[in-house]
Simulated assay, not measured.
Amino acid sequence: MKQLVHIVEPFDVAWSGSSQRALALWNLLRDHGKVRLWAHGNVDPCYGEYSILQISGDVAPDGGTLIIVGGYYAPGPWLERGDFQRVIVIFNVPEYGHLYRLLGRIRVAKLPPAELLFASSLLRDIAALDGLIEPSPISLAAFTPMKEEPRRPFTIGRLSRDREFKHHEDDPSLYRMLGLQGHRLRIMGGTCLEPHLGIDRSGIELLAAGALPAADFLRTLDCFFYRNHPSFLESFGRVVLEAMACGLPVVCERRGGYVEWIRDGENGFLFETQEQAWEILQALSGDKELRQAIGAAARRTMEEVYGEMPRTRFRAWYLGYANTPPVAGSPASAA
């Protein structure tokens, strides 16, 4: 008999990393268990292709394994009413007050002790709680490298939600400088930058979030660039690992959960200042062999993290067939 599994996430924000993680987990488990997706309130239209159940009144998760993805919101009173055999909390957003209150409710309701998974060791260390680390699942079959680098201007890009806090305040000036050098910039989830680019925006293309499937968009790039506003901490950065899976050299600020999977100068690059970012991007633009070597190393790293063996073992753990999942740390921190 297949294991009953409830995956709960708000699904109210378009293209959010937390929602993408919940959907990837559903995809990992759906053929091996009786897996249901649940949402609080209204589901954003971008998730319309998925059969997501609405929690309302007596229609709520009950029995089997409960997986709460995110940990940054307060579940309704259905949590205390549920008769669950196992409770898993995947914490991937730095909203620690919500997490502590959620764990308290689970204890008071006398539910099984919550098993904690963190998106990165950064989150686990700040939370000061015991738990395992699991990077958000990514399909290596969907995110694949281009066979050959096409003839085109050197193309730098990034994707994210279309919100200003997802972008650094110095990004527009860096993009203008790179565009004036003859490079091409493609920013998906970047229409919010429109007021900040000014008149001189040669070579810069701003796309709405979700304008293209993420994998298709990444294959139009030669390099992936990523940083956020200083007020926002990227606790994992799923899009960075998707770019690495596509065999792209990634150039990222040394700040965020994704850092744990990047070995600077080996499978990607990390920078601290605008000047360092500029120098790395300029070096990559003129060195195809360097781009290929870094990109190939990035892909190998993602195959170690998301290959069939760790996927199979994680699946067995979620379904209760194994005591521990295969990952207790991250490749970069273990190197």
Score class of each variant (00 low, 15 high):
87 V>D: 09
87 V>H: 04
87 V>N: 07
88 I>N: 05
88 I>M: 07
88 I>K: 02
89 V>Y: 00
89 V>D: 06
89 V>L: 08
89 V>S: 05
89 V>T: 08
89 V>K: 02
90 I>Y: 14
90 I>H: 09
90 I>A: 09
90 I>Q: 11
91 F>D: 11
91 F>R: 04
92 N>V: 14
92 N>S: 15
92 N>I: 15
92 N>Q: 15
93 V>N: 14
93 V>T: 15
93 V>R: 09
93 V>Y: 11
93 V>W: 08
93 V>P: 02
93 V>L: 15
94 P>L: 14
94 P>T: 10
94 P>K: 00
94 P>N: 13
94 P>A: 15
95 E>T: 12
95 E>G: 07
95 E>L: 13
95 E>A: 15
96 Y>A: 00
96 Y>F: 15
96 Y>R: 00
96 Y>K: 01
96 Y>N: 04
96 Y>M: 03
96 Y>T: 05
97 G>Q: 14
97 G>S: 14
98 H>F: 14
99 L>W: 11
99 L>Y: 09
99 L>G: 07
99 L>C: 08
99 L>P: 11
99 L>H: 07
100 Y>T: 07
100 Y>R: 13
100 Y>G: 04
100 Y>N: 08
101 R>P: 00
101 R>F: 08
102 L>S: 06
102 L>V: 05
102 L>E: 06
102 L>R: 00
102 L>N: 02
102 L>Q: 04
103 L>G: 10
103 L>R: 02
103 L>D: 12
104 G>M: 06
104 G>I: 06
104 G>L: 05
104 G>T: 08
105 R>S: 06
105 R>F: 03
107 R>D: 14
107 R>P: 01
107 R>G: 00
107 R>T: 10
108 V>G: 00
108 V>C: 02
108 V>M: 04
108 V>L: 05
109 A>D: 08
109 A>E: 09
110 K>W: 07
110 K>H: 12
110 K>D: 13
110 K>G: 04
110 K>P: 00
111 L>N: 03
112 P>H: 02
112 P>L: 03
112 P>T: 05
113 P>W: 01
113 P>H: 01
113 P>T: 02
113 P>K: 01
114 A>R: 03
115 E>N: 06
115 E>C: 04
115 E>V: 11
115 E>W: 05
116 L>Y: 01
116 L>K: 11
116 L>C: 10
116 L>W: 00
116 L>T: 12
116 L>D: 02
117 L>M: 13
117 L>W: 13
117 L>A: 11
117 L>C: 11
117 L>F: 13
117 L>H: 14
117 L>K: 07
117 L>S: 14
